[in-house]
Design a protein around this nucleic acid. Structure first.
Length: 338
DNA sequence: GATATTTGACCTAT
DNA sequence: ATAGGTCAAATATC
């Protein structure tokens, strides 16, 4: 069964989506220039200047622009849920990074920039061929995503470790990109259940995917409301990877969608009848995640941006912007598929 | 046989 | 000294 966007809805939104995305891109460019200025006057103090053109304001606007886009695609604009930059700022200012302090009633996935690893210049002469040795990521950023269930993020992951964490009831599972070796993809993540009732899982990502999986690039599982029963697919074009934009998508492997949930759930929590994450309208945003950029994982929200509670410190601003700037794409190409 | 997972050992950072 | 992150042999699954 093929799924299609309701034309009456999408056609009327296309222009607005385009407008929002273009604005976001423009603002990102402005912010990039702000960063340039900031770096050239490093000691000017204060990341946000206060005037309308400050980096902080620009970030707010950018986030608001993308939030609006998501809201439009989610069909939320009629409900007045368009998110402004101020709203995002308000959300972000309340974030604390402490998992214990987060809102227990938060059911929407939450993405939050986290720590930033400083370059570790320490090295030893023995690390190369010693078991268990590793070098801490030099410049990769990390960000987290909290979900009530173990959701697939569209990438292929392979588990490589599991650890008991101090003061945590649940062990932490470590994953690396399936294409780590064949494509030198450095993306990793770890998943840990941080809450029992209701269950909440925190996924912490490190590094962006640099891999590309062309095998199933044109197939995306869209309907996650009943993943075990009626997975629906959207097909872009008649053949695989015949479109340069979507050919860059990573694959969604059904077996991986299932095994990751079950592999942890069977250990951590009893299976529930309702392990779904995305509601029907969330399907739109799921696709939208990829429309923005396959690497734009900071915006990988499975729900409305109301769950976006990033704590935007200085590094997080740069993180957001670097991701924004990575997603160079032709909006018209994108929109023709909306 | 190929690929993925498990799990204890090992290493680094703090 | 300890917690957390990674490796890799053993094991499981397809």
């Amino acid at each position: 069964m093929e799924w299609s966007w309701p034309e009456s809805v999408l056609l009327s939104k296309g222009e607005r989506v385009k407008e929002e995305l273009m604005q976001g891109r423009e603002l990102a460019g402005q912010l990039c220039r702000v960063f340039d200025d900031h770096k050239s006057t490093l000691v000017s103090g204060g990341f946000g200047g206060g005037d309308g053109g400050s980096a902080e304001d620009l970030v707010d606007k950018i986030l608001g622009s993308f939030a609006n886009t998501l809201s439009i695609l989610n069909g939320k604009e009629s409900d007045g849920e368009i998110v402004s930059g101020d709203q995002i700022q308000g959300i972000s200012s309340g974030g604390s990074g402490d998992s214990s302090s987060r809102d227990a009633n938060h059911t929407a996935p939450v993405i939050k920039s986290e720590d930033f690893y400083e370059e570790s210049c320490k090295s030893t002469s023995t690390f190369k061929d010693r078991r268990g040795s590793y070098k801490r990521r030099k410049t990769s950023h990390s960000w987290t995503r909290d979900t009530p269930t173990l959701t697939d993020d569209g990438h292929g992951w392979r588990k490589y470790g599991q650890k008991r964490i101090l003061n945590s009831k649940h062990s932490r599972n470590y994953y690396r990109c399936t294409h780590k070796f064949e494509q030198s993809c450095k993306a990793t993540k770890y998943v840990q259940q941080i809450q029992d009732h209701p269950p909440m899982f925190r996924t912490t990502y490190h590094g962006n995917h640099t891999c590309r999986d062309y095998l199933k690039a044109s197939e995306l599982v869209l309907d996650c409301t009943s993943p075990r029963e009626s997975s629906k697919f959207i097909r872009f074009g008649g053949t695989k990877q015949d479109h340069p934009f979507f050919s860059s998508f990573t694959s969604v492997r059904k077996e991986e969608l299932v095994f990751k949930e079950e592999s942890i759930i069977k250990e951590e929590i009893p299976p529930t009848s309702d392990d779904r994450v995305m509601t029907s309208h969330d399907n739109h945003s799921w696709l939208c995640d990829y429309l923005v950029s396959p690497n734009l994982t900071t915006f990988e929200s499975s729900g409305p941006l109301s769950g976006f509670s990033s704590t935007l410190d200085e590094f997080d601003h740069e993180d957001v912007i670097s991701r924004l700037m990575m997603g160079s794409f032709d909006l018209d190409e994108v929109l023709q598929y909306i």
